[in-house]
């Protein structure tokens, strides 16, 4: 699908060049030239991303042909077909029903069929499944962020907690989540908690960590002179926290939230696996692997990564808005 698009529509660089030439030849075409300038800026910014995307697609196609060839040759052998032309071999490897590695256009078509062509309420709609995963991701991310901030405050304000709590926080992340997730589901199920919450708890389990570590650093990032200032006002520790430590840790909070939201999605998907693949992107991955539906697995993977990228971008956007409203946009820009 992507290849088709690349074939039919001319590459943006070329249309832009034509626009420039038109503007130049017309002489008086000031607005065209200005448009050309704006377009040039967009292209300059988008070019590296487009180049990398193009390279990935090319590598993907080559890998798909190479990985699917052995099976295709098997089929030919069983069908007593000999001397198959290379072109046919390639086109056959890219259109198998259950390929080892599906081609990009197969995945694209599958995503199109399961999003645009399916009603959202349908159990075969990827949007339906992505929505289920997204809801537990967001709930877990929210709980993880709050837990992370609270832990960080406790650690910064209590020296003995720093010594006693921090090793456990780090240890919690050394246990493979795949081992912990079923235990959490089972234990919560035993006490009657089902549905969204157990998955969100797994998301929280992963996402509190970057927030806690980042916020400990953020809350401690205050200048000694700014702390002395609070002492000269005989400010209470709550006032010092609220008016000094929390505001100065906001840039740290958003940096760790970007990591946390992506990892919360991983947690939600992992949490969907032991529940028996009922619903969610994790369920699509699992049922795809049960029935050897590689195209289904890959389309769920692609949707999951697009979802993660969108979530990270959203946190980044909120970050920019908040820093701007706090008047920190300039100092942040200077420091980077």
């Amino acid at each position: 699908m992507r290849v088709e698009r690349a074939k039919t529509s001319p590459p943006p660089v070329m249309s832009h060049m034509r626009g420039m030439m038109r503007g130049g030849a017309g002489g008086g075409g000031g607005s065209a030239a200005r448009d050309g300038g704006a377009a040039a800026r967009v292209i300059v910014r988008a070019a590296p991303v487009l180049v990398v995307t193009f390279a990935i697609v090319v590598i993907w196609y080559v890998a798909a042909v190479l990985l699917n060839t052995p099976f295709q040759r098997d089929i030919y052998k069983r069908g007593k077909l000999t001397n198959v032309p290379v072109i046919r071999l390639i086109s056959d490897t890219l259109s198998q029903r259950r390929p080892v590695l599906p081609s990009p256009h197969q995945v694209g078509v599958e995503i199109y069929k399961t999003t645009v062509l399916k009603s959202i309420t349908s159990k075969r709609s990827l949007i339906h499944h992505a929505g289920i995963t997204l809801s537990s991701t967001l709930l877990g991310f929210l709980m993880g962020t709050v837990l992370g901030i609270l832990l960080a405050i406790a650690i910064v304000y209590n020296r003995s907690l720093d010594k006693s709590l921090m090793p456990w926080i780090i240890a919690s992340q050394t246990i493979p989540i795949l081992a912990v997730a079923p235990m959490i589901i089972v234990v919560l199920n035993a006490i009657g908690v089902q549905g969204l919450l157990p998955k969100a708890v797994i998301s929280m389990y992963l996402s509190f960590f970057p927030v806690a570590v980042g916020m400990v650093k953020g809350l401690r990032s205050v200048n000694p002179i700014e702390l002395d200032l609070m002492r000269t006002y005989s400010a209470s520790s709550f006032e010092t926290l609220w008016k000094l430590r929390l505001p100065s840790s906001v840039p740290y909070l958003f940096t760790s939230m970007k990591v946390a939201v992506a990892i919360a999605l991983v947690g939600a998907i992992v949490g969907e696996l032991p529940t028996g693949a009922v619903a969610g992107l994790g369920a699509r991955l699992l049922s795809g692997s049960y029935y050897g539906q590689t195209v289904q697995i890959w389309s769920a993977l692609i949707v999951a990564s697009v979802l993660a990228a969108t979530l990270v971008a959203l946190v980044g956007l909120v970050n920019r808005i908040v820093l701007k409203r706090m008047g920190l946009a300039q100092s942040a820009a200077v420091s980077t």
Partner: peptide, 20 residues
């Protein structure tokens, strides 16, 4: 100090950057 009996001006202005 508890009665805020003095004002202290530091070597650096120590203005909080998120406040006007």
């Amino acid at each position: 100090r508890m009665q805020r009996g003095y004002g202290y001006v530091f070597q650096a202005a120590a203005l909080y950057p998120w406040r006007t």
